[in-house]
């Protein structure tokens, strides 16, 4: 027995959510519509239907370049983020209470701090006169400042640092859910630490790795701030293209088509990633 049994109540309770989510789906459908509308010059949208916007996107290596660069950059950054994130998560898992609290606090602070601020902070570190270059120059390790800012490397560094917490949390959670004595059981049967890590710990944390990789890949694929601040226009990604087309060229139909492509591509990648991880996650 709940608060009541009449169907009227749940409908009433769900009404506000229906309005909000309904509006969301309404905007999505409008975007679909606009993406097949003809563009009649800046901020002028025609009435008919056309596939020109999509043809324009897929027909040009220039536009496709944004998509492929985004896919590629996000792919290798996600891989690096996964390795670093796993290391950090494993470190947290193996640490005593005190270190765990400290590291946890630092990660939560990162999590709660706006991307803009964290990206800007990275810029202050890797910039031409940033602390990194100044200390490397000062130590005599390099002779000229490293060009990191406004390069793909700089963008990659920023994306990895900014998305690291998203990777760490799910992996820590899955490390903690490994049944407590399983590692010791493996050791008593003769498995070395390395062996235990690869045959027990990694397989059992596969769900955490999968969750982290999916979230981080989606986030990095559609990054706007990091390429914007650290790429300085030289390393623009797909989100930057959409914004520029919509807000600077006022070509809403093309921007809507590019957004649709982004949505479908990211949906497809998530689907493929999940399929892949279902294959490599051992059944239990």
């Amino acid at each position: 027995m709940g608060i009541g049994q009449r169907l009227g109540w749940p409908l009433l309770f769900l009404l506000p959510a229906a309005i909000v989510i309904g509006f969301f789906f309404f905007t999505m459908s409008i975007m679909v519509r606009i993406s097949v509308a003809p563009n009649l010059g800046p901020a002028q949208i025609g009435d008919g239907f056309t596939s020109d916007n999509y043809i324009q996107f897929f027909g040009s290596t220039f536009y496709l370049g944004y998509l492929f660069r985004s896919l590629w950059l996000a792919a290798y950054c996600t891989l690096i983020t996964a390795v670093l994130g796993y290391t950090l998560a494993y470190f947290i898992h193996r640490s005593g209470r005190r270190t765990r609290v400290l590291v946890g606090a630092l990660l939560v602070i990162q999590f709660f701090t706006a991307y803009v601020i964290r990206t800007y902070a990275v810029m202050l570190v890797i910039g031409k006169t940033g602390i990194l270059n100044r200390s490397l120059l000062g130590a005599g390790i390099i002779e000229r400042p490293l060009a990191l800012l406004f390069t793909e490397t700089g963008v990659a560094i920023g994306m990895i640092l900014v998305s690291l917490p998203f990777m760490v949390f799910p992996i820590v959670a899955s490390l903690q859910s490994i049944p407590p004595n399983v590692e010791m059981a493996a050791a008593s049967l003769g498995a070395s630490n390395t062996r235990i890590f690869w045959t027990v710990i990694v397989p059992l944390t596969m769900p955490g790795i999968a969750a982290g990789i999916v979230v981080v890949y989606l986030f990095e694929l559609t990054s706007y701030i990091v390429p914007g601040v650290l790429g300085g226009g030289y390393v623009d990604m797909i989100a930057n293209l959409i914004y520029a087309k919509a807000m600077q060229s006022f070509d809403h139909p093309f921007a809507a088509a590019a957004a649709m492509v982004t949505l479908l591509v990211s949906g497809l990648t998530v689907y493929l990633l999940q399929k892949f991880f279902r294959l490599v996650t051992p059944r239990t």
């Binding site: 407590p180 010791m184 059981a185 008593s188 630490n193 062996r195 059992l204 239990t284």
Partner: peptide
């Protein structure tokens, strides 16, 4: 001698079976 070289069988209270095997 580290645990993995002791060759001592142990059955834990929660059995600690490998859930993925």
């Amino acid at each position: 001698i580290p645990p993995h070289k002791r060759n001592i069988g142990i059955v834990f209270q929660d059995y600690a079976l490998f859930p993925h095997r």
